[in-house]
């Protein structure tokens, strides 16, 4: 998805993992995804630069759909859709 499309997305759940280092955001995402229903969208906020590579790899492996990410003021917003 483009950044514009991502900005217009309404996430069903926002997981704020800002301030934690790897593996914090990944574990936060793992915990968060369990609380969603199939097809719902999760947004992960992270200040850890590794998240941008970590989350898509993990999401795809688990069969979820990685939607994209963009940088906000000093952190990243990462989006995925639960399978």
């Amino acid at each position: 998805m483009t950044t514009e499309e991502l900005k217009n997305l309404n996430a069903d759940k926002v997981v704020d993992a800002r301030g934690t280092s790897c593996p914090g955001p990944l574990l936060a995402a793992k915990k968060g995804i369990g609380e969603l229903d199939s097809g719902q969208i999760m947004e992960i906020l992270s200040t850890d630069v590794g998240t941008k590579r970590d989350i898509p790899k993990w999401a795809n492996k688990k069969g979820h759909e990685y939607l994209g990410d963009y940088e906000d003021a000093g952190f990243f917003r990462v989006f995925m859709k639960k399978k």
Partner: peptide
């Protein structure tokens, strides 16, 4: 511990 976390995320 970090590696175990990765393994945990991967079930």
């Amino acid at each position: 511990g970090v590696i175990l976390s990765g393994a945990a995320a991967d079930d």
